[in-house]
């Protein structure tokens, strides 16, 4: 019966599904923090912070994720930098840095979309630069940035499958494990539906969020 192998090995697939959710959520949170900080450097930082931000974004955005993960797996290993041997943690670090570069660009575009008059008005009312950013610029920027950040998050969920190559026991890895042990490609259909369910849920949530945050037009 179709679906039988998937059901018999459901515990493996569920374990992978949960790992994928944890990996994606964790990496998205870190990527958002990276994005806010680096985008601020890029826009308001001096020459050095701004160039460093450009370097970070252009490097991580323009090299293959798979090679970045291989690189981190080796470099962070106990006998090299000695930071971690755990493929999950390596994947979390790698995906956060990769996705952070895209988040930076999305947030920067949001900041730049704000009318300079807003900043001038806030400054002339006596707000400090930090207070201007925190109270005037970022709250408005977040609204414009929700759709592009949604794309970044969706890409992150899909990209997290690359982590299977370094041995992270996420959804694709577990699907391949079951597929190899049962000589059936059926579990991979379950894997596909698993990723789809996550990205679809994300779209629905973001759609609602967008409507709530929208400017009155």
């Amino acid at each position: 019966m179709f679906g039988q192998i998937t059901i018999e090995n459901l515990d493996y697939l569920v374990q992978g599904y949960v790992t994928t959710i944890a990996l994606s959520l964790g990496a998205m949170v870190v990527a958002l923090i990276i994005g806010c900080v680096v985008a601020s450097f890029r826009v308001w930082g001096g020459r050095v912070p701004s160039s460093a931000a450009v370097f970070y974004v252009e490097f991580f955005r323009n090299t293959p994720l798979l090679i970045q993960l291989f690189f981190f797996a080796v470099v962070l290993a106990p006998n090299n930098l000695g930071i971690t041997a755990d493929p999950f943690l390596v994947a979390l670090i790698g995906l956060s840095l990769y996705t952070g570069a895209f988040a930076t660009e999305a947030i920067r575009s949001g900041i730049l979309a704000i009318d300079p008059g807003q900043v001038e008005a806030a400054r002339s009312l006596g707000l400090s630069q930090l207070a201007t950013i925190r109270l005037v610029v970022l709250p408005q920027a977040i609204r414009t940035v929700v759709p592009p950040l949604g794309n970044v998050a969706s890409a992150l969920i899909r990209n997290s499958s690359v982590a299977s190559a370094i041995g992270t026991r996420e959804l694709l890895f577990m699907g391949l494990l079951v597929a190899n042990r049962t000589f059936s490609l059926e579990p991979l259909i379950g894997v596909l539906l698993g990723y789809w369910s996550l990205t679809l849920t994300l779209s629905l949530v973001l759609g609602r969020l967008e409507r709530r945050l929208a400017f009155a037009r």
Binding site: A73, V74, A77, P78, N79, A85
Partner: peptide, 9 residues
Amino acid sequence: AQALLDGRC
């Protein structure tokens, strides 16, 4: 083998 050399296993 690379993972063994790196101490990942």
